[in-house]
Design a protein around this nucleic acid. Structure first.
Lengths: 307, 307
DNA sequence: TTCCGATATTAATTTTTTTGATAGATGGTC
DNA sequence: GACCATCTATCAAAAAAATTAATATCGGAA
């Protein structure tokens, strides 16, 4: 007979592309997962997954069945959420944020959230988008905020915010703090960039290449704190999302100028496992995070108009 | 942890209104059902059913959860149907029909069906609507055709056919075979009727009462074959759905005249368990049954125009 | 070929489910 | 109001199913 465990196992294998990874995610053994899938296939009388030496590939049946299974799991989660956690703010909220968000908008969001939901057990993980995406897919995080991208199996994506990229340098190195700048006027650049696995790296390279911005030297730093510290004390510059620089708008430490002609925008999306539904507390935190970020941007725009 | 068995048990209890009945339907023991419901309620942290001495009554949570559960089971059934019995006509089809349908339209439908689906294991149950409804709800029949009525928990209803009621008497007793008749012109009636539990009984009584048709004597027969036989050999009459009289349109055995001023119509609906999806074979049989019945009515209308 | 990284298989173990028996509760009835 | 019929709850034993750990097997890449 069919069971939810079998279905959850299948969904996990489908999304992870491997029995072993699915076992890890489900807190089970590879052997157990293997048997679940076998029983499922037997009882359906059809192959769902083709095993090749390096993992699994879904069959046509598998694709269709997966779509239904995810929808079913989600619906079940929703039905149960409506009953169990009926609008009560409680339990735990586990979220993942990139340094972009932890630097400036996390703290004020947490302040507001904790005031409203004092009993919630809050856990924030700081990491880069690849790690966060994995954690969300594996169900270890309720949601994460990552750069906009072209989806992933098993994840639902919602645009959280669109923010402008800034050229950041140490104080008095750029001048005209908070006024728009055309990057081409500044080249050749000595620029600090994240590693090639980082989504923003590609955006930056593409922007420079297509607008003829010459780069004199690149320094690859995958440490956000390190980048800021280094930029603050050197002649190097960095291109960073505006949202992380709210606390430096006073110009005492950095010169910050929005890229212009053309402006460069970055999307940040909220990702969550499709098979689950956000708890009320998690949903509240997400909406507070959006609000705080939007306020941040509004404040910056006001300052920019002054400047 | 939650399981499909628990959910199926809950759906069964909800629909049957009793643990004991649910156990019977699920082929389990009352004890097992009881424990499933308890675990479900524990894991949801909410009561779903209130136990009173004569069965159970759902709570508000129970109502909502039930609706979701049925939808989920149905969706799962659909997903699996798409894979397993992917459009192949096979397996078994178990249907329930009242004598109204078995008398004349079953045979030609079966002829056509068997020709198209020779490998299907076909099982027909003849019974009255109450029994058929129970059998469908308990999942022992794929579908049944019963008089139109106001739904039942867990059953989906589709109108199959609307048919005209006929006054039936032995040959030459009414005269003007196949021409419309106003029942009031014939009263007082000596009429054979089904028992009060029969849906059509109520329709007949209501019709007579509201159109001032006097009934001299009633004879209650819950045997359709017996009714016909008795009517054929006596001065008693009966009011019967036209669909069961197709083979007697030639007038050699009965005088048959449609009720008129006003005409009396009866609805027949197809009922199936909401939680399941009709197999392709069952769906095919249902559509053939409808076609045959419609042809039957068309033939009768042609004959009536001739008369 | 050989190795590496997968999945499959198997038998023992653990956990869960199911059962049968019984107790308890409730409403209807005389 | 006691009795009766008909429910559900509980519990411990039995049965069934899931899970594990160890190991076999398979398929591709170097």
């Amino acid at each position: 007979m069919r069971s939810l465990k079998q279905i959850r196992s299948f969904v996990a294998v489908f999304e992870e592309g491997s029995f072993t990874a699915a076992a890890l995610r489900e807190g089970a053994t590879q052997s157990g997962i293997s048997q679940h899938i076998r029983h499922l296939e037997e009882s359906l009388g059809a192959e769902l997954l083709v095993r090749d030496g390096r993992g699994v590939i879904p069959t046509v049946h598998g694709e269709r069945y997966y779509a239904e299974c995810v929808a079913i799991l989600r619906r079940l989660d929703l039905a149960e959420a409506e009953i169990s956690r009926s609008s009560a703010l409680g339990g735990e909220v586990r979220i993942g944020l990139m340094p972009t968000f932890t630097r400036a908008v996390l703290a004020p969001t947490l302040d507001r959230f904790i005031a409203v939901a004092p009993t919630v057990d809050m856990r924030v993980t700081e990491a880069y988008s690849g790690v966060l995406t994995d954690l969300v897919r594996r169900g270890e995080l309720d949601f994460a905020v990552v750069p906009g991208f072209q989806g992933a199996v098993g994840l639902s994506t919602t645009l959280l915010i669109r923010d402008r990229e800034m050229l950041v340098a140490s104080k008095n190195r750029l001048g005209q703090h908070l006024t728009p700048i055309c990057l081409k006027d500044m080249d050749p650049l000595k620029i600090v960039v994240p590693g090639p696995q980082n989504t923003r790296r590609k955006n930056i390279e593409t922007y420079c290449a297509s607008h003829g911005v010459a780069i004199e030297r690149r320094l690859q730093l995958d440490a956000m704190m390190g980048t800021l510290d280094f930029v603050a004390s050197s002649e190097w510059v960095a291109i960073l999302p505006g949202v992380m620089m709210v606390n430096d708008l006073d110009g005492t430490r950095f010169d910050i100028r929005p890229l212009d002609q053309p402006a460069l925008y970055s999307d940040f999306v909220l990702i969550e496992p499709t098979r689950r539904v956000l708890s009320p507390a998690a949903a509240l935190f997400a909406s507070m995070l959006r609000e705080t970020t939007e306020q941040t941007i509004t404040i910056r725009q006001a300052r920019m108009r002054e400047a």
